[in-house]
Write a protein that binds this DNA or RNA. Structure first.
Length: 809
DNA sequence: GAGTTTGAAACT
DNA sequence: CAGTTTCAAACTC
């Protein structure tokens, strides 16, 4: 499929998922392209204050082509895979089509408004535009330099959301950084539930009403010069936080020999605002001479986030209540360097996602970097700073904000031109997991100050500004798990460290791999507790969560999590645990999927492969970036991909059923090929199976169930009896052998009454089983005798071991 | 343990 | 959405 057929959206259009960009070629990005697969080009588009960009160079070193957008300071704005369109040499991911949302470079539309592909004929000075792949192309945008303006407004008098045109009574921020990753999102801030990407290098954000965001915001984006664009307010509800969030962050290794974390200073605000614009939660409005300059630079050690506002001469004066400056220079400042943080307003405190909250954690023996967000120790407010964390792949679409969204407050201090972002605090409240809206996977980590995690384990609530070591990773705390902030293989990005947020359960696994202690091992994926996911008869009753602060990575849909226990599952002792304390898991044997497809049970269960037999496995931390993409891909195909397949039927109380139903054709749904049968549930009307025999009155099913039950009972009885026998034998006090080792009698004391009783139990169980199986009397007798032989062997063996031990002693 | 069967997942 | 292919587990010998 050619790119022309995909339908693209010019980045400067007035529709939702747009980002604006225009520029000119100063160096032919394609000149170095040799082939689509062998080499690649890396044009660097540099934007300036007037929102123009230049393709300034190429690269042939990367396997994947990226569009790197930098600002005029040469700092990274965004980097995404790109391709050109048309007949020119395609800058494609090794020839593969780019997914929707990726940026495409076109030449600036010609007078006929028909964009032409970037090609080898381009010369420096050619204008280019950036577009998104996979988005229907609207009418070509007018104007060469498209500038997006985002306005967040609030009615100053009523407090109700209200759409504001860009005017004098608004405040404009100029963002100074932009997400550097395709997965960057600010859902944690605004729950815009979107990770739509953008290449927009400049945006202007305007706030009103003293710069404090209300729970519901109206966002308007304007495109200067496009007077025909509509003004469509878009409300972004921001509700109080109800769900505490615990974040586990594991940085992605840049290179094996890099052992320190490099600071980044992408701020929450910039991500919030840009995400608003990128997510489509904004409307575009013409006529605003606004802009956002995105900057990114090194952050000093121990820095917190402040947003410095600066005047933007092109904008009208601001109101007294408004944030005075019209241009926000976002920076990260150390408490002891430069401007100090201003005292927070009452009930507010500065945004605390600062470097001081992030402590680097070195894990011996691993090249991974861990980051710990420390717990506030000086919080006096009745709020706590928490961040909603959602996997990047779980919110590819724009959805209404969940109820447990976190309110974000922005305040400004005109004296110092600093902007502060405040998150609500829930002080000292035990953070119990809350049901999560379906489709939103979350990690809940404890946030009490007494719950400081050990190295590399978990991240607690966000903390006040504290002196920090050499790390400033404030932005990652807002990222969804699995998010890779930065392409780790791009040498153009200096001073940035790739990170990935991983579910807490992964940390548990990883710790097990690293043989590290942990404070509170969280449960594994919720699917593990389902009979289906636990592979039929191995299903077990889930143990009580080790901590109420934890919830599994999977969504906690009440309709799903009210699982029932498999018929034969142990109900008292819980699952058998591994030596590590983890629940045993069947290893996979994947060979071709790299364990990054749902074929792989480990991957489908949201787990890393561990002690598996798979080959070329990428379901591990070493391939976190690849893995994150795979997760996103799965969720793109099916947002419920990682949800339990066996849920509670809503119509029948207590009944479990397959949420999708099976599609069996030849197994009669009476083999483990059938997911329903495997989960020991009957097929439902959801199923599309042919020749189904897995229904209540099915004689075949009853027979199978009877046999399965008999086998299960037999195993259990034998196991119990043998266990008792072993325990009785082991309890026998050892005594010296009463005869020489050769041909002597076994210690008589071994045959105690308990041993005899246990042996009898074994024999009885075997007899009952034989009878249940309706075996002929001869066979029953033989089975009992054989069982007696096994018991004798066990007794003899125990006696021998006892004797040997005594001999050694 | 090798080969076959099966159906979910992935792909077209 | 339907048909086909891929994949890994279940199953058989």
């Amino acid at each position: 499929m050619s790119s022309q057929e995909e339908g693209h959206e010019a980045l400067g259009s007035d529709t939702m998922e747009v980002v604006s960009a225009a520029g000119h070629v100063v160096a032919n990005p394609l000149s170095g392209t040799k082939s689509e697969t062998a080499t690649s080009s890396m044009p660097t588009i540099i934007g300036n204050a007037s929102s123009t960009f230049s393709v300034v160079g190429t690269s042939t070193t990367d396997a994947i082509n990226y569009l790197t957008v930098q600002n005029h300071n040469g700092q990274l704005i965004i980097q995404q895979p790109i391709k050109t369109v048309g007949n020119g040499p395609a800058l494609v991911n090794n020839g593969a089509a780019l997914p929707k949302g990726h940026i495409i470079v076109r030449q600036k539309p010609a007078p006929n408004n028909q964009p032409t592909p970037l090609s080898s004929s381009n010369v420096p000075g050619d204008m280019v535009t950036l577009e998104k792949a996979g988005v229907k192309r609207p009418l070509p945008a007018t104007g060469s330099n498209v500038i997006t303006k985002v306005i967040i407004t609030k009615n100053p008098t009523s407090g109700q959301p209200q759409a504001f045109p860009a005017g004098n009574n608004t405040q404009t921020f100029t963002l100074t950084s932009l997400p550097s990753s395709t997965s960057v999102s600010v859902n944690s801030l605004i729950n815009s539930s979107s990770i739509v990407q953008s290449g927009t290098p400049t945006k202007t954000v305007t706030l009103t009403s003293q710069g404090i965001l209300s729970p519901v915001k109206t966002v308007i984006a304007t495109i200067p010069g496009t007077s025909t664009a509509k003004v469509v307010p878009y409300k972004i509800p921001i509700s109080p936080s109800k769900t505490p969030t615990k974040i586990t962050m594991i940085p992605m290794p840049r290179s094996p020999n890099k052992s320190t974390l490099n600071p980044t200073n992408i701020t929450v605000l910039s991500r919030a605002l840009n995400s608003l614009a990128q997510s489509g939660n904004v409307a575009l409005k013409p006529g605003s001479p606004s802009k956002v300059i995105i900057k990114q630079g090194p952050a000093p050690t121990g820095s917190a986030i402040t947003l410095k506002t600066q005047s933007l001469p092109t904008l009208a004066p601001q109101t007294a209540q408004s944030i005075r400056a019209t241009q926000v220079m976002q920076s990260i400042r150390a408490p002891n360097v430069g401007q100090s943080a201003q005292p927070p307003a009452q009930n507010l405190r500065p945004m605390t996602i600062g470097a001081g909250n992030v402590q680097p954690v070195q894990v011996p023996g691993t090249r991974f970097h861990y980051v710990r967000l420390v717990t506030p120790v000086t919080v006096s407010s009745s709020q706590t700073t928490l961040a909603v964390v959602k996997p990047s792949a779980s919110f590819p679409k724009i959805t209404p904000a969940p109820k447990n969204a976190i309110p974000i407050t922005m305040t400004s201090t005109p004296q110092t031109n600093q902007l502060k972002i405040t998150l609500p605090i829930q002080q000292n409240t035990p953070l119990a997991p809350k049901p999560t809206p379906q489709g939103m996977h979350r990690i809940i980590l404890p946030a009490t100050s007494t719950n400081v995690p050990v190295q590399g384990t978990t991240v607690t609530s966000l903390a006040p500004i504290q002196p920090a070591p050499s790390v400033s990773i404030q932005n990652v705390s807002q990222l969804p798990p699995g998010t890779t902030i930065l392409s780790a293989n791009n040498a153009n990005i200096q001073g940035l460290q790739g990170f990935a947020l991983v579910p807490a359960s992964y940390v548990t696994q990883f710790q097990q791999q690293m043989n590290m202690p942990q404070v509170a091992p969280p449960p594994r994926h919720v699917r593990d507790y389902f009979p289906k996911e636990a592979k039929g008869a191995q299903a077990t009753l889930p143990p009580p969560p080790p901590r109420r602060d934890y919830v599994p990575i999977a969504s906690i849909d009440p309709a799903i999590t009210q699982y029932t226990v498999s018929r034969n599952a142990p109900t008292q002792n819980g699952p058998t645990l591994e030596a590590t304390g983890a629940r045993p898991r069947k290893p996979c044997n994947c060979t071709k999927s790299q364990c990054l497809k749902l074929y792989c049970d480990c991957f489908a269960n949201g787990e890393f492969c561990q002690n598996c037999n798979c080959t070329n496995c990428a379901n591990n931390l070493e391939h976190e970036e690849e893995r994150s993409k795979a997760i996103k891909s799965c969720l793109d195909r099916n947002p419920q991909a990682f949800h339990p397949k066996i849920g509670k039927a809503k119509d029948v109380e207590g009944n479990r059923r397959h949420t999708k139903g099976c599609n069996c054709k030849r197994s009669g749904c009476l083999k483990n090929y059938c997911e329903c049968y495997e989960a020991k549930i009957m097929c439902s009307n959801f199923c599309k199976c042919i020749g189904c025999k897995n229904f209540e009155e099915s004689p075949e099913r009853k027979t199978l169930m009877h046999l399965a039950d008999a086998a299960e009972v037999r195993v259990q009885q034998q196991t119990a009896a043998k266990t008792k026998l072993s325990s009785q034998i082991s309890c026998v006090p050892s005594r010296p052998p009463t005869a020489p080792a050769s041909g002597e009698r076994l210690p008589f004391a071994l045959i105690t009454s308990d041993v005899a009783e246990a042996t009898s139990a074994c024999l009885l169980a075997q007899a009952e089983e034989a009878e249940r199986m309706k075996m002929p009397a001869v066979v029953q007798e033989r089975m009992v005798i054989e069982e007696f032989g096994r018991c004798l062997m066990q007794i003899i063996d125990s006696a021998n071991r006892t004797r040997t031990a005594n001999s050694v002693a």
